[in-house]
Simulated scan of single mutants.
Amino acid sequence: MAGNSFGHLFKISTFGESHGKAIGVIIDGCPPNIEIDEEFIQSELDKRKPGQSKITTQRKESDVAQILSGVFEGKSTGTPIAILIPNKDQRSKDYSHIADKYRPSHADYTYQQKYGIRDFRGGGRSSARETAARVAAGAVAKLFLKKHGIAIFAHVSAVGTIESPNLDHSDLDALLALREENIARCADPATANEMIELIDSVRKDGDTIGGKIATVVRNVPVGLGEPVFDKLHADLAKAMMSINAVHGFEYGSGFSGSAMRGSEHNDIFIKEGDKVSTRTNFSGGIQGGISNGMDITFRTAFKPVATIMRDQDTINEAGENTSISGKGRHDPCVVSRAVIIVEAMTALVLADHFLRFRAYKNEQ
Score class of each variant (00 low, 15 high):
His19Asp: 13
Val276Trp: 01
Gly328Phe: 10
Asp173Gly: 15
Gly20Cys: 12
Ala151Asp: 15
Gly211His: 08
Glu317Asn: 12
Ala2His: 13
Pro32Phe: 12
Asp63Phe: 02
Thr322Phe: 08
Ala301His: 02
Glu272Thr: 03
Ala318Trp: 11
Ser323Ile: 13
Val25Glu: 11
Thr322Gly: 07
Lys101Tyr: 08
Gln312Val: 12
Glu320Phe: 07
Ala338Met: 11
Gln113Met: 12
Gly29Val: 10
Ile67Arg: 01
Arg59Pro: 02
Phe255Glu: 05
Pro50Tyr: 06
Ile81Pro: 04
Gly123Pro: 05
Arg48His: 11
Gly326Leu: 09
Gly288Ile: 00
Arg134His: 06
Gly326His: 11
Glu73Asn: 12
Arg356Pro: 01
Ile23Arg: 10
Ile55Asn: 05
Asp89Gln: 10
Ile308Met: 07
Ile23Gln: 10
Asn33Arg: 15
His19Met: 12
Ala214Thr: 15
Ser126Asn: 04
Ile81Phe: 05
Ser242His: 01
Val159Cys: 10
Ile315Ala: 08
Gln364Cys: 04
Lys146Trp: 04
Thr14Phe: 13
Arg121Trp: 02
Asp37Pro: 06
Glu343Thr: 09
Ala192Thr: 02
Asp313Cys: 11
Arg91Glu: 14
His8Asp: 14
Pro227Thr: 00
Glu317Ala: 11
Asn244Leu: 01
Thr191Trp: 06
Pro104Cys: 07
Ala190Tyr: 10
His148Asp: 07
Ile296Ala: 02
Gly273Lys: 01
Gly51Leu: 03
Gly24Asp: 15
Ile117Lys: 12
Lys93Phe: 14
His148Cys: 05
Asn182Tyr: 06
Ile85His: 03
Ser336His: 14
Lys204Asn: 14
Gly285Leu: 00
Val339Arg: 14
Gly284His: 00
Val64Ser: 07
Ser157Gln: 09
Lys54His: 11
Leu178Ala: 15
Glu130His: 03
Thr280Leu: 00
Gly74Thr: 01
Ile85Val: 08
Ile341Met: 13
Ser323Asp: 10
Ala154Arg: 06
Asp313Phe: 13
Leu224Cys: 03
Phe282Arg: 05
Asp267Leu: 00
His265Gly: 00
Thr191Leu: 02
Lys303Gln: 05
Gly285Glu: 01
Glu163Arg: 15
Met345Pro: 08
Glu17His: 12
Ala99Arg: 14
Arg179Val: 07
Leu145Val: 06
Ser105Phe: 13
Ala154Glu: 02
Arg91Trp: 10
Gly288Pro: 00
Asn292Met: 01
Met240Ala: 14
Val202Cys: 08
Val335Gly: 13
Ile41Lys: 06
Lys88Ser: 13
Ser92His: 08
Ala259Arg: 09
Phe357Lys: 04
Ala306Ser: 15
Val349His: 07
Leu198His: 08
Asp331Ser: 09
Arg121Pro: 02
Gly285Pro: 00
Lys271Leu: 01
Met294Ile: 01
Gly20Ser: 12
Arg310Gly: 02
Phe15Met: 15
Ala190Arg: 12
Arg121Phe: 07
Pro221Arg: 04
Lys327Val: 14
Glu197Met: 08
Ala136Val: 06
Ser13Tyr: 13
Ala137Glu: 06
Arg121Cys: 06
Thr314Ser: 10
